[in-house]
Design a protein around this nucleic acid. Structure first.
Length: 105
DNA sequence: ATTCTGACTTGGG
DNA sequence: CCCCAAGCCAGAA
């Protein structure tokens, strides 16, 4: 089981209507280190279209979606989250204190 | 096989 | 708030 699989497993465990930060996913996937969050980003970047992984529930520490250079993917992320009941402020940011996945600790 | 690029976070100014 | 630099793995040509 490589890093990608671990990341995908963690992301797949994020409940509907809830979001997790890259950092959080990295910690749960046992990818520790200063660049753990980045590994998560790389793992998600390796996702294929049609995958069952809810990648849209992964946001950056600012509570916003990370641009991938492309234009539609971030937009789709906003749409999917909105459909799940996640609210955004006027700046397009999510209130992490309210929507961040509480995995129980 | 090598080379380039990219879904991040943190600390200091 | 913005900008800069470091640490890191996977995929494509």
């Amino acid at each position: 089981m490589g890093r990608n699989a671990r990341v995908w497993a963690v992301v797949s465990a994020i409940p509907v209507g809830r979001v997790a930060t890259y950092k959080q996913v990295a910690a749960l996937a046992h990818i520790e280190g200063p660049s753990g969050a980045r590994q998560v980003g790389y793992a998600l970047a390796a996702l294929k279209t049609g995958s069952d992984v809810p990648w849209h529930r992964v946001v950056n520490v600012k509570g916003g979606v990370s641009p991938r250079g492309d234009g539609d993917a971030p937009n789709e992320q906003y749409d999917r989250l909105a459909l799940e009941g996640v609210a955004f402020d006027a700046f397009g940011r999510i209130d992490l204190t309210r929507y961040e996945w509480d995995y129980g600790g």
